[in-house]
Every structure is written in C-alpha cells, then in structure tokens.
Amino acid sequence: MSLEEWDGAHSLYLTRGDEVSSYRPWFTGDVFEHVSVPAIDDTDLAIVIAHPCSMRAGPNLKDRILFAAVRTHEATPAHKWMDGYFNRMPLPELYGDGAPFHAAWLEDIGVVRTGALELGTRIACLSPFGVNVLQQRLVHNLTRLEVGTSKFWEAFSRTYEESDLLEEWTEGLSDMDQAPAVSFETWIGQGTPTRRKRLEDAQHRSQVRSDMRAEIRRIRGAI
C-alpha cells in the first residue's frame, strides 16, 4: 500500500483565501498566516495538526493546539507523494489556483497558544479528504504505519460533520446569539441518544441536519 494520491489541488481544500468563512470553527488542517511554531524561525505559516477530538474542551478551544510549520516547496506532482516526501503534507496552490506550491513539515511541530491564533489570519481550510490525507501522512511520519484514508474518515467523520453543523448554526444565528458555540453545544448534546452520538452513524446524519435547520428557523421565527 502507498500513501494516498490526490486528484487536483481542489480536492484537498474546502476553502482558500477570501472563501474561508469566519463562521467555520477552527479545525484540523486549517492553515494560518502570522502564526509561528515555537523554535521555528524561518516561516510564519502553520497548519493545525491537532486531532479534532483534542482541540476543544466542550464548546471552548483548549489553551494550546498542536501545529506544524508550512513553507514553500518545489512543485511536485501528486503521484510522487505516494511513495516519498513522507515527512511532509502537500499543500499545492495554497493561495489559490496557480499559486506557488507549499507543504507542511510534519517534523517541525509544536504547540501554539490559541490566543496567538486570533492575531493570525486563517488562509485555508482542508476538505474532509484533505484532513484524511493529513492524518494519514502524520501517522505514517510518526510511526511508519500505513492506514488508508477511508479508515480515518470512518473513525472521525462525526467530528467533521459536527464542525459543518456548528458553522451553519453560527452563520444562521450569530446576529441574534452572542455565544452560538455554547447554544450549539447544548442543542447537539440533547436527546437519547444525543444528536452528537447520532452523528456517528451515517444513516442518521441527514436527519440531524434537517432537525438543526428546522431549529434555526424556529429560533429565528420566535425572535
């Protein structure tokens, strides 16, 4: 088995540049400008490599999050990353179509205080596939264990779904809710099993989404 190949830069990113939504919660694979990994002096670009489950305590971000340094990189075709460059994560066209190639160095890692993130600028969010590729390469770099990207999706897609829902909740209610992350945490923790638990099963996700959208409409209609 080789590491995963990708089909064009667009497959790795959810959003880049101006498309990055401020409503989207910070997540694994987010790339920031003006954020430096401690002891790394040659770049102020960094990518979140912390696991989604370990970034937060309830609705709040933890004080410190694990990052990897990002630098420019020679443009290298996708197939060469399958059996090489094991200590890096490719970030082609990071600044948009046609922009220079970048990569995250998975050995240049460290914790960054979340306060520093507020001074930085988020310039890219990875797609679910991009996050899976990042996790695959990180695990392989640290342990030389090869795990298919679909396995990461199977295990952790619930966290991605929840992040999508929180983004939609925030976008839908931020003009009338001072703490949407808190109200969302309450809502998603309701029910038996909880809505959060139901997200673990792919066949229940669409119902949770429908319910959330109905709840947003209800809240907006009631106020």
Partner: peptide
C-alpha cells in the same frame, strides 16, 4: 435539498462546484 438533510458540502460536490459557490 437542505430540508431533505443533504450537507452543503455534498450538494456542492454533486453539482460539481465549490462550497463557497453554493453559499
């Protein structure tokens, strides 16, 4: 489509565009 429970990300993918385009 949204009332049926499809994720915006999946709608974008099935239509062949980016999530920002759908937004």
């Amino acid at each position: 489509l949204a009332e049926g429970g499809l994720a915006w990300r999946d709608i974008a993918r099935l239509v062949g565009v980016t999530v920002p385009a759908v937004r």
